[in-house]
Amino acid sequence: MSPAAELLSILTFPAIDPIAFSVGPLAIHWYGLAYVCGIMLGWAVARSLVRNEKLWPGNTSPCTVAHLDDFLVWVAIGIVLGGRLGYIFFYDLSSVIADPIRAIEVWNGGMSFHGGFTGATLAMILFARRHGISIWSLFDVVASVAPLGIFFGRVANFVNGELWGRPSDVPWAMVFPTGGPFPRHPSQLYEALLEGLLMFVLLQIVGRAGGFRQPGMVTGCFVSLYALARITVEFFREPDPQLGYLAGGWLTMGMVLSLPMLAVGLWALWRARRAAR
């Protein structure tokens, strides 16, 4: 690496306090604010989609705005519980068995997207059955706005200086406080752009171009695109230290968990197209 590039890598990582602000003894972390911002902004966009009845089969929205208001609590619980349990079982089970108190130490990080995805899916199924809502259409509503939450979550990972990438000599590589002396890929920002902003734009285009009229189409696009984006970023992201690389030094747990997602996403696309025909 040239001296100029090395200097740039040192200067570009902002030293931001992970605590956004404190109210007495209560510390509000950027990570928690990211979850709140993602869920609330997604909820606002979802409300606008439901109000636009022309987007849906038969020009009838699958649920009401009041339904979405009630569902907000369900999906928040599903994301948090699923994300935490997923991280424990997929990435940190041995440590939690050795020290069970780690299971509730969410302030030390440890949320799995794949676990949060599973928890949110279960919450959607239960809510849809309870209120007589089309499950696939509810999936589509949530899938179309979920990238907003992913975006804020990955930005929070960057602010916390966690989940950094592999060592690199690219000009935008950064030396993270907990990543050793070597410049690394800011893989959190790669994920924020690919899994967050880009996916949100693409899913909005697909949905508003007729995708919502084929229940499951937007969901299939979301699951497939996320799996592909995650597998791609895993080539730049440092694997979790307690697991390392799998299968000869190139496969990661993120890739392993994304492969079934890709299969499910492609199946959902096939099913949506078949149902439409």
Rank of each mutant, 00 (worst) to 15 (best):
I135A: 12
P186C: 09
R271P: 02
I125L: 11
G249W: 14
V36T: 12
P260E: 09
F71V: 03
A272E: 06
V159C: 07
E191G: 11
P57F: 09
H67W: 13
W107N: 11
R129C: 06
S9Y: 08
G32Q: 08
E53V: 06
W43F: 14
A20S: 15
V145F: 03
A5V: 14
S168A: 15
L262Y: 01
A103Q: 07
W164D: 00
F127P: 09
I125T: 01
S2H: 08
I150A: 06
H185C: 02
N52P: 05
L49T: 01
G179Q: 14
V50F: 15
T232L: 15
A120Y: 07
L257F: 06
V206P: 00
R277W: 07
L262D: 03
P3A: 11
L68N: 09
C37D: 01
L189R: 13
A76Q: 04
A263C: 12
S187Q: 03
G24R: 14
G109D: 04
V170R: 08
V170A: 14
M255I: 00
N59E: 12
L68E: 05
P147D: 06
F89D: 03
V23Y: 15
A44S: 01
I39D: 02
L55I: 12
F176I: 00
M40R: 01
L7W: 15
V106Q: 05
P62L: 10
F212V: 12
M255F: 04
I77D: 06
P25V: 03
D70Q: 11
Y31T: 05
V75F: 06
V23C: 13
L11D: 08
G149V: 00
P171R: 11
L193W: 10
M40P: 02
Q188W: 10
V233W: 02
D240V: 07
F13D: 01
W74N: 11
